[in-house]
Amino acid sequence: MNIFRLAGDMTHLLSIIVLLLKIYATKSCSGISLKTQELYALVFLARYLDLFTDFISVYNTIMKVVFIASSLAIVWCMRLHPLVKRSYDKELDTFRHYFLIGGTFVLALVLNEKFTLQEILWAFSIYLEAVAILPQLVLLQRSGNVDNLTGQYVFFLGAYRAFYILNWIYRYLTEPRFTRWIACVSGIVQTGIYADFFYYYFISWKNNSKLKLPA
């Protein structure tokens, strides 16, 4: 474990806490894409299959349980919670995310470290995570103004993978045989997708103005 990866995991955890806080405090999920939340639940379920078979560390196990539980809780909340589900922007959240699932699964069948079910699902979860934010970014552009907590949620979600890129550089430099091309390349693509959001987020922060994404 290195400081970059710990910072990345904590930033990731923070993004989930901010989202849970927004939904719990405002009893509303307006501005949040249910499709992105469903994709994240799928990412964690596909990636953490080894939760019960390979024990890495207490920290690793606890974080996996937290990520799976929180992502499922958010999806449940947005689909079934009587008060919250009313505020879901169903007509704005129209990204065809099934194409993302299909495309990334086919890619995982072709590009994986080993043609085994666990490795294919792991690669699938890495590729899917890289594009999972797209429905959310599209929804933010459609809904015009972005409330603070939602903006912070997306910002921390983008920042966590940027920390992971520093972690991969650090591990590449310090560990003789460290290569993890699938995660590295996919992580760079993932962080790149946030680039325009980071730009507008920085502008709004500098001008102390409301975050607005151009439609």
Partner: peptide, 10 residues
């Protein structure tokens, strides 16, 4: 075959 990378990251 080639051993896949250890999945020690989240």
């Amino acid at each position: 075959g080639n051993s896949s990378s250890p999945k020690d990251e989240l």
